[in-house]
Structures are given as structure tokens and as C-alpha cells.
Amino acid sequence: MTPGTGGDAPRVVEAGLRSFVCAYERYVEDPFRLGQLVAVREGPWSILGCVVDTESGPEDPGRPLQAPGGSLTAAEVFAENPHIRPLLRTRVTVVACGYIEGEGAFALLPPAPPPLLARVESATPAETMHATSDGAFLALLVASALCDDAVLAAVLRGAATAHGAAAGEFTVRAGKELARLLKAEPARLSSILRGVTA
């Protein structure tokens, strides 16, 4: 099963033009993966974004999760303490990297943020290929303080998979775009590409 597609899709709970946060109804062990491209298809355009962070924890900050002693596995602890799971939430932070309106894909910020409570779903391979075809989508990601090298490497790896047989070609094309964007930061470029080839 594609990660993040099991059960109910997360919904947008904080919306911004550059980034948004979506939350699952509860804690999930297989949320969207780092660097995965996701889509919000509610509204006049589909907003595409890249998963830059995922965090799980108590919804109420006043009730921190206490670690039990003993040798139980996490699954066993959850089974023994069924009240814990409903108190936990998984939240995913997404950085917008483009949008699709009609037949056109734009590597630009969307004109408006995604609607609150809109469902966030995995981008289809076709959407991923469409949005990442020329590497321009990287500009928004590189410009985001939320996107570190590990995220960019994960994005490139994931998008390359969507490109199938043309993965190598895509990686070079995107890498070149990255090299242009990071021309003054060779160490960063190197670190990202190390993540891609790992």
C-alpha cells in the first residue's frame, strides 16, 4: 500500500500559501513519507506539495505521553492502553511546490492556500511527473526554510521513482536545476545528491 493512503486521508488544519499542515484524525504509523509529493484537490486548482516534516504526539500539550517501563512493544502498549492512541495525532507539514489548473502545471505558489479541512492525498505518478518534469518545482522548495537537504534528497528520490525508466534522466535534469539554485553552495548540492544516490 502506498504510504499515507491507508485509512482516512489527513486534512488541512493550518493553511498558508507557502506551506500547510495537515493532520490525521489520529496517530498513524504509516503517514506520508518524507519528500513524498501530495495533492490537495479541493478548490479551483490542485495544489501540489512536498512533505517536509511529520510529527506524532499528544494532541493536548498539557498531557505529555509518558513512556511505560517494561518490555512491551509499542503495539502491546497500545493494546494494553487503548486510550492512548485517540489522544495522539500525526501531523504532516507540506511545502507547496506548484499547482495544476486545468491542463497546466505551474511550478509557482498557488494563488490561494488550500481550503482548511480539505483532504490531502498522495499525488498520482502522473501528477508527480507532470509537476516535476522540468525541475522548476525545486525553486520553491529550496527557497523554503522548512526544506533541508534531507527533504530535497527525499523529494528527488521519490520523484525519480515516478519517472520510471527515465529516472536517471530526471535525476540529472533536476540535479542541474538544483546546481543552478545552489550555485554558491556546492557543499549543500553535494550533500543533497549524496542523499539521492544513497
Partner: peptide
């Protein structure tokens, strides 16, 4: 309410 299944099927619910 709290619905807490202990070693029986069903989802826990707190709402």
C-alpha cells in the same frame, strides 16, 4: 466519552 477496548476488537474512541 471514552470507549476503550481491552483485548477485544474495535477502535478506541475518545470524543
Amino acid at each position: 466519552w471514552a470507549v476503550l477496548p481491552y483485548r477485544v476488537p474495535g477502535e478506541a474512541a475518545l470524543a
